[in-house]
Write a protein that binds this DNA or RNA. Structure first.
Length: 438
RNA sequence: UCCCCGGUAGCUCAGCAGGUAGAGCGGGUGGCUGUUAACCACUUGGUCGGCGGUUCGAAUCCGUCCCGGGGAGCCA
């Protein structure tokens, strides 16, 4: 209104505080409606959506005309009076007094209607603007923060492990390969664990949180080529300590999201009942052997030594309404660094945490081999070269100690808590088999 | 890598006992003083994924390649 005193720029989420006052909003057009001499637009600024109204005669003619040039997703600045208005989505509305387009968008490809997944993935950079994708990204942010808060509250030190590595951490999975300036091959990290073990011998309790890369030709709703993992490692931790910490973390993440992201969960139409149930009591713990028995009773017999497949995991986890900890798998189907169970050397001191509702494995952890000779034997058994692991073997030469840890897949947790059908929506720009764009 | 399904307008799809292409939405124009994925009228819009074959004639049948979707294995 006044040229001398422009209205303060506010975010849409704060509109209720400004009822009766003039404010400036800046954002993007998500809906346009015109009805003769009344024009409506819905504006998005990242914090929320607000309806703005222009009435002919109450706005300078040039500003009113500017509305008619607006297109979906055009950016603009507007000034207006905030009113409580039951007819407006959200209950508040801005009566526009000035409207200034910043940029008029070209024909926006994403319409407010159904689109195929392929089309949306090709336009991922624009798809992020939709309410649903925004809600997912907010939940993801909440989970990331909660992870950091969780570990710092327990005196874990953040260690940034390298992404370019000289060799496989686990050897078995396929690695993304790159040329290291003519000095040989380097590989993108598939886990920070081995480096974290070194740091645990320095600092006791450590964790890392970063991207990891798996060049597997996996094509399922649970797999990404590039995903984010939180890994924890602690000296003198036993398998029981690892399980307790993993359970504690998952419980913390669920309660934190329920506590602080109700609007996002509502936008996603996530039924929070199953999430509340997670917090109702301790997570059930079953050994691999006990799982085999359960499977047999359910008519899905599995031979001892066989790894649990996706179907088996789903079947067992559906027997509980809380996440399930499955421990002590056969050593033969696990990684070389896992400690054997002294009570039964055929078993590994390891644990997988299976999320309910069919979301499957979200955590994998173990107690690590502490003895040098045992580790040397494992490296040999797994046909791994010893030389690249010399530094790792040193950890067993200079004050070796029992230790253990786990890794948690961020996108799988996001997908679970948001109730998504595929992890590709749980990360801003997913890297999938045959999909590297945008 | 294997097994299914699909590729027709900018988007979502219909058309397939072979006869030369349609709808809704979007875009454009006009109308409407309270719209809610607004509505009404008019209008624009296509090498029917590529290549090859059968045929008088192919979006439709056959072969092949490419791309996408779903599932499996493996994993977080």
């Amino acid at each position: 209104m006044s040229d001398q005193e422009p209205s303060p720029a506010v975010s849409i989420s704060h509109l209720p505080r400004h009822v009766g006052r003039s404010v400036t909003l800046r954002g993007w057009v998500t809906h346009l409606r015109s009805s003769g001499k009344v024009r409506f637009l819905v504006l998005r600024d990242g914090s929320g959506l607000a309806q703005a109204v222009l009435v002919k005669g109450q706005v300078p003619e040039a500003d009113f005309a500017a509305f008619d040039r607006l297109t979906l997703e055009s950016s603009l600045v507007l000034e207006g009076l905030v009113r409580a208005e039951p007819r407006a989505p959200g209950g508040f509305e801005v009566q526009v007094t000035a409207l200034t387009p910043v940029h008029l968008a070209q024909d926006y490809p994403i319409a407010p209607k159904e689109h195929g997944v392929g089309f949306l993935m090709d336009h991922r950079h624009l798809w992020l603007r939709s309410p649903r994708q925004q809600a997912i990204l907010k939940v993801r942010d909440e989970i990331s923060r909660a992870c950091r808060d969780f570990f710092h509250a327990r005196d874990f030190i953040l260690i940034d492990t390298p992404i370019l590595t000289p060799a496989a951490c686990e050897g078995t999975t396929t690695l993304f390969e790159t040329d290291y300036l003519g000095r040989g091959k380097a590989y993108l990290s598939q886990s920070g664990q081995l480096y974290l073990e070194a740091a645990a011998m320095a600092l006791g309790r450590v964790y890392c949180f970063g991207p990891t890369f798996r060049a597997e030709k996996s094509k399922t709703r649970r797999h990404l080529m590039e995903f984010w993992m939180v890994e924890a490692e602690a000296a003198f931790f036993t398998l029981d300590d690892v399980m307790a910490l993993a359970e504690d973390l998952v419980r913390t993440l669920v309660s934190r999201v329920l506590e602080r992201q109700q609007p996002a969960l509502a936008a996603l139409e996530r039924d929070t009942g199953p999430l509340e149930a997670v917090l109702a009591g301790p997570f059930p713990r079953l050994s691999y052997g006990e799982v085999l028995e359960r499977l047999k009773d359910a008519g899905a017999e599995l031979a001892w030594g066989e790894d649990l497949g996706g179907d088996e995991e789903t079947l067992v986890s559906k027997m509980f309404d809380r996440p399930l900890l499955v421990h002590r798998y056969p050593l033969s189907c696990k990684a070389f660094y896992m400690e054997a169970d002294p009570a039964d050397p055929r078993l590994a001191l390891c644990v997988d945490l299976l999320a309910p509702e069919g979301y499957g494995e979200i955590v994998g952890g173990s107690q690590r081999v502490a003895d040098l000779d045992v580790l040397l034997g494992r490296i040999k058994d797994h046909n791994l070269p010893q030389e690249p692991f010399e530094w790792y073997l040193d950890l067993r030469r200079y004050g070796s100690a029992p230790h253990g840890g786990f890794g948690l897949g961020l996108e799988r947790v996001v997908a679970w808590l948001c109730g998504l059908h595929h992890v590709r929506e749980a990360i801003p720009f997913p890297r999938l088999l045959d999909r590297l764009y945008p």
